[in-house]
């Protein structure tokens, strides 16, 4: 078992003819992802890496009614429109890779998706991989070579690769790895993914990768403290040495009013007996401690 995606996931790529869209279509196909169609308005009839391109999502779904997941590479200015198109066509899982989507656009389509029972991952995220089964994202293929008991949820792309790499090197595989994105407004938050891992029989351990800014890590800690998570959890928080009040790239990584600081997040986890690693490699050691 996995969460969100599995070997039966059937994918449509929105923005398939763009530079990143076509490149990552190739990588996903190489990984074994079942990509049935792509969409770029005005480019219908072409094909990319052997995948047929359509002008609209609706048209692609008529041809391939099995499609259940979309991955969006459409440039930021047009991304919101593509997300609405996928929701209205009836797709139930939408992974948005595109970065720099205006926050107000994201807020509106995320709420629209919720009302329609659609799950959104992202925006500005690396996507999802269930090792050896499927990948709907841009995570590097050669890092994800071993399935296993660890579920990872992360706000950061590159840090996710880093920690997955060290786990795999240590012989510890992953059930599913979910990059939820670093923007202030995202479709699926950490608590929702932790809840999915708790219910997933294959996942035995959970790794939470956070960073300073916002209160999501504190809320996950509260959720764990309420007794709803029985599986061991290990956390890593980036930004221990970030000076307060400085913007560190991610719109999300802003420290303000004492909330969202490194100390506040670490304290929240420690209070519910979740060990916090000081470096990405230490995550492996802490996970091993829980293993028989």
């Amino acid at each position: 078992m996995t969460i969100l995606i599995n070997e039966n996931t059937k994918v449509i790529v929105q923005g398939i003819t763009g530079r990143e869209g076509s490149r990552h279509t190739q990588y996903m196909l190489q990984y074994g992802t079942k990509i049935l169609a792509g969409v770029t308005p005005g480019k219908g009839g072409q094909n990319v890496q052997g995948v047929p391109v359509f002008d609209t999502v609706e048209e692609a779904l008529r041809k391939f009614p099995d499609i259940n997941t979309s991955i969006v590479f459409v440039p930021a200015q047009f991304a919101a429109d593509s997300v609405y198109e996928a929701i209205d066509a009836g797709i139930k899982l939408i992974v948005i890779i595109t970065e720099h989507i205006p926050i107000h656009d994201a807020l509106r389509f995320v709420n629209y998706a919720k009302r329609r029972g659609v799950t959104i991952i992202g925006p500005n995220c690396p996507g999802i991989v269930s090792p050896l089964k499927s990948k709907v994202g841009i995570l590097p293929n050669h890092i994800y070579t071993k399935s296993g008991p660890v579920g990872i949820v992360s706000r950061s792309g590159t840090l996710t690769y880093e920690i997955s790499y060290h786990l795999t090197q240590a012989g510890i595989g992953q059930s599913t790895v979910v990059g939820i994105g670093g923007d202030p407004i995202i479709g699926t938050d950490m608590i929702e993914v932790v809840r999915m891992f708790e219910e997933d029989p294959e996942t035995k351990y959970i790794v939470v990768i956070g960073e300073i800014g916002g209160t999501m890590e504190e809320r996950v800690a509260q959720y764990i403290g309420s007794g709803k998570v029985t599986k061991p959890v290990v956390a890593y928080i980036a930004g221990r040495t970030a000076p307060p009040g400085k913007r560190m790239g991610h719109a999300g990584a802003i420290v303000s009013m004492g909330m969202g600081s490194y100390e506040s997040k670490v304290k929240a986890f420690q209070e519910v007996n979740v060990p916090v690693a000081r470096t990405p490699t230490e995550v492996v050691k802490l996970i091993k401690k829980f293993m028989p």
Binding site: E20, E99, N124, S154, R155, S156, G157, T158, L159, E162, G182, I209, E211, I212, Y236, A238, G239, R240, T241, A242, K246, M248, G249, H250, A253, R278, T279, P280
Partner: peptide
Amino acid sequence: ANGAGLTMATMDLVKEFGHEPADFLDVGGG
């Protein structure tokens, strides 16, 4: 480094080794 999270983790690592970071420079995704 690339990505805000990894760049911050890199700063943290520099500190962990007892040194002081001179900057935060994230070259971004892509």
